[in-house]
Amino acid sequence: MDQTATTALADLVRRAQKGDEIAQRELIVAYQHRVAGFVFAMTNRSDYVEDLSQQVFIKMIRALDRLQAPAQFESWLFRLARNTCIDQLRRQKLRRIFLPFGDEHENIPEPPGAVDTEELDALRHALAQLRPQDRALLALVQEGRSHAEIAETLETSVAAVKARLHRAREHLREHYQPDHED
């Protein structure tokens, strides 16, 4: 993002922080597709995309006044998105433990080919084999977050991010088979 765009974004965030609904709407419209992509990469479920994206943006609106540095908005937003998705995956895991036969429809994976092309299915299949933390890492990189920003988001060091990213990419490559059959 260039300097002008960064300044414009910071201004927009400041307006939204003051409760300007038009600015809040602009922020949602500007980031809704990217957040949706992030949520889908994290959960691998099309039916979660709208709900979880909505949760992310509601949290964004409610916590926006606590954001100290408007220039850090993007990394802050994707941290919210990551935490929301990881919370959802944890809740889902707990539900599976405590209600193994309840809400079975929640655990039905999308059939291969239901989404799109063979390559996309392969990517989804490979992502599904990774730990949520690794999926988040790869999705954050796809969002253009720098190693330093990711380190800040995950509250770890840049070196640790690089090492984890390397391992996550290796795992993704291992599981990436465009002609896989489930």
Partner: peptide, 17 residues
């Protein structure tokens, strides 16, 4: 996976909204 696959993933996700 190449950038195109990630792009497809984002496009699909965006259509869910």
């Amino acid at each position: 996976p190449a950038a195109a696959e990630w792009e497809q993933l984002h496009t699909h996700a965006a259509t869910q909204l």
